Amino acid sequence: MARVDSWTWAVRMFKTRTAAAAACRGGHVKVNGVTAKPAQTVAVGDEVRVRTAGVERIVEVARVISKRVGPTVAVECFIDHSPPPPPREVLASIPQRDRGAGRPTKRDRRELEKLRGFNVD
């Protein structure tokens, strides 16, 4: 048995254990479908869902470790069930607002709603 924050750090899902604990406190880590606190224990066979940088990773615990190990050993400690990332074409087609452009104006919001098909008058 190991703590979920320690295990996710040990298998290199987070750079620091502090970041792993903060993700648990923020609700970005789930064990068997339930939001996990940093001290929750994980066992072999548990499903751990971690959301980092907008990407959700779904892994199954294959081996419980509490000390950080090398990347080749870390990969052997879990079974990755994550969906494949979306193709680059899909990511490129998602419109993004320019950095520093500020909040959308009322006119911008109406144009976005019209584009998305909401509130069509």
Results as ranks from 00 to 15, higher is better:
Lys37Tyr: 03
Phe14Gly: 01
Pro85Trp: 01
Pro86Glu: 05
Gly26Lys: 06
Ser6Asp: 09
Arg116Glu: 07
Pro83Leu: 14
Thr8Lys: 08
Val120Ser: 11
Asp98Lys: 15
Glu76Arg: 15
Ile58Asn: 02
His28Gln: 13
Pro87Arg: 10
Arg110Ile: 12
Val64Thr: 12
Val44Glu: 14
Phe78Ser: 07
Thr52Trp: 07
Met1Trp: 02
Asp80Asn: 10
Pro85Lys: 09
Asp5Thr: 02
Arg109Ser: 11
Thr18Ser: 15
Thr8Phe: 01
Leu115Asp: 11
Val50His: 00
Ala62Met: 03
Glu60Asp: 02
Arg57Gly: 00
Met1Arg: 12
Val31His: 02
Thr105Arg: 09
Val11Gln: 03
Arg103Cys: 10
Lys106Ala: 15
Thr18Arg: 12
Val42Pro: 01
Glu60Tyr: 01
His28Val: 00
Val44Gly: 07
Glu60Ile: 07
Val34Cys: 07
Val11Tyr: 02
Ser93Leu: 13
Ala2Tyr: 03
Val50Lys: 00
Arg12Pro: 01
Gly33Thr: 08
Gly45Glu: 00
Ala53Cys: 08
Glu47Pro: 00
Val42Tyr: 02
Lys67His: 15
Asn32Gly: 10
Ile65Pro: 08
Val11Asn: 02
Asp80Ser: 05
Ala36Val: 09
Cys77Leu: 06
Arg25Lys: 14
Arg57Lys: 11
Ala22His: 09
Arg63Ala: 14
Glu47Cys: 06
Gly70Lys: 15
Ala39Asp: 15
Ala20Ile: 09
Ala62Ser: 11
Cys77Lys: 03
Lys114Met: 10
His81Leu: 11
Pro86Asn: 09
Ala10Ile: 01
Asn119Glu: 10
Val50Arg: 00
Glu111Cys: 01
Asp121Ala: 15
Arg57Leu: 01
Val29Pro: 03
Asp46Ile: 05
Gln96Trp: 00
Glu111Gly: 10
Gly100Gln: 06
Pro84Ser: 10
Lys15Ala: 04
Pro71Tyr: 05
Arg88Val: 14
Gly102Pro: 02
Pro95Leu: 11
Thr35Pro: 01
Val44Asp: 09
Arg88Cys: 08
